[in-house]
Design a protein around this nucleic acid. Structure first.
Length: 433
RNA sequence: GUGACCGUAGCUCAAUCGGCAGAGCUCUGGAUUGUGGCUCCAGUGGUUGUGGGUUCAAGCCCCAUCGGUCACCCCA
């Protein structure tokens, strides 16, 4: 016997019992994106590695140690491109926007993707696996703060539409290419004399990504963070105005947000508005996003503002369960066909009836194999079917079936069932409750 | 990448000091040969994650390894 295969570490099957949660999420996404005028896009799972490394940033954890990268088969000249399973969705969408000349369309171009897999070689834990599935929105070609507010408005309408409560946005502005470099210098000036007392990670962050110094969770560094200069005090006038407008518009959308001057994001492409959506009962963010006005240019396009977010099915599903929100139950069969007899003509009749019902759009099941009548009835019961269709000697001879009401309780067995002529069965099942 | 805890039937879990691997649920068959739910009987289902070690004897102790869960880092 060969060894039993198992899914790879961090990769998960999405089993039938989980599917109703995913369908609930998809339905909510389709409704809210339609309402806000976002159109669906799907981009390839695999892209050139440099698309991701250039957009996310060479120094980020995602690029440095989490990407699934490999060399493609060599072409005729022996060159082989290094390609990667996508770790995030924005880079591919921006690439598609540029490649297909969407900057010629009316701006902004508002796009969303739904249920597409993302891959990161992380160590798995709750709400974090190596292949996860995201819903995300991107709005390209417009820097109006109304678009920023709209994103969060859409998100909260999405979450509350599914019945989720106790969510809030964490919000910050991290400036742009005009004001952030100056701020970073001030931040480094502040940290330089303190560096010896910082944790190992912060020693690295100081050189690699100073903004992340504010993100440190080590107790020894908290006092330093609290006293550090904050980006909000160093925003240039355009960024300050933009952020003020975002906050004003967010109130119009009734988005519950909390300013967090320490919120920075792990991807280099973010500018100005950054945000996360968090649940009071959960440390992990349900959604992360922000503006990325420099990204298109970084990928070889004209300067094009953009903003987007991503949310994972896996985390949303966890949150739905945590808040005890049940998806609509799967619909049981309308009819379950049971045959009493081992001879072929009994099952022939059953298959014939099931086929007719299904062709008529009536959800029907039947007992398979050589199961006893009793066993078939048990299965009919377990299926939750409204009616059992019984086929036996009398029915075959008389060209009728017995239709038994499986939901009736307490009555004697005889009075739960009625004779229905074969050619009236479909009408009957459509007529009765 | 770092750390903690945990791996026994498809699922949820027992197994006393190291002493014959069990139960419930599910599934299948049956309880007057054509009727579900409640009840009862029976059956299927295991290399105790894997590989070593200690021991007369290991599910239990030791080592390694793989996997799971959770936290950190990071992120969705």
């Amino acid at each position: 016997m060969p060894e039993q295969y198992k899914a790879l570490q961090g990769f998960k099957d999405v089993l039938p019992d989980e599917q109703p949660y995913w369908r609930l999420i998809e339905k909510a996404v389709i409704e809210v994106t339609e309402l806000y005028g976002y159109r669906r896009i799907e981009t390839p799972t695999v892209e050139e590695t440099s698309l991701f490394s250039r957009s996310s940033g060479e120094g980020t954890d995602i690029v440095e140690k989490e990407m699934y990268s490999f060399d493609d088969r060599p072409d005729k000249e022996g060159h082989s491109a290094n390609i990667s399973l996508r770790p995030e969705g924005t880079a591919g969408v921006v690439r598609a926007y540029l490649e297909h000349g969407m900057f010629q369309l009316a701006q902004p171009v508002k796009l969303y993707y739904l249920g597409v897999p993302m891959f990161r070689h992380d160590k798995p834990q709750a709400g974090r696996i190596r292949e996860h599935h995201q819903f995300g929105c991107e709005a390209l070609g417009e820097n109006d703060p109304a678009v920023d507010a709209e994103m969060l408005g859409l998100l909260f309408q999405f979450y509350t539409g599914m019945g989720l409560q106790n969510l809030r946005a964490s919000l910050n502005s991290i400036g742009d290419r005009n004001c952030r470099p100056q701020y970073l210098e001030r931040l480094k000036d502040y940290y330089r004399p303190l560096l010896d007392t910082c944790c190992d990670d912060c020693q690295v962050r100081f050189y690699k990504n100073p903004l992340r110094l504010l993100d440190c969770k080590e107790p020894q560094d908290q006092a330093k963070i609290a006293a550090a200069p904050k980006i909000a005090d160093y925003l240039c006038e355009p960024c300050r105005e933009h952020f003020a407008a975002v906050k004003r518009y967010l109130d119009f959308y009734s988005v519950p947000y909390q300013l967090n001057p320490l919120l920075v994001r792990g991807l280099d492409y973010y500018t100005r508005t950054v945000f996360e959506v968090i649940s009071t009962g959960n440390k992990q963010a349900l959604t992360g996003g922000g503006r990325y006005d420099g990204l298109a240019e970084l990928l070889g396009g004209k300067p094009t503002p953009g903003i987007g977010f991503a949310a994972s099915f896996e985390r949303i599903s966890l949150e739905l369960k945590h808040q005890k929100i049940a998806p609509p139950p799967e619909t049981p069969p309308r009819a379950y066909v049971v045959y009493f007899g081992k001879a072929p003509e009994y099952k022939d009749a059953a298959v014939r009836v099931v086929a007719e019902l299904r062709h008529a759009g009536i959800k029907a099941e039947m007992g398979y194999g050589e199961r006893s009548a009793k066993s078939q009835m048990k299965q009919a019961n377990a299926s939750g079917s409204a009616y059992a269709i019984l086929i036996g000697d009398n029915e075959l001879a008389g060209n009728f079936v017995m239709v038994k009401d499986m939901q009736a309780e307490g009555m004697d067995e005889e009075s739960k069932q009625v004779e229905v002529k074969r050619d009236e069965l479909i009408d009957y099942l459509r007529r009765v409750p």
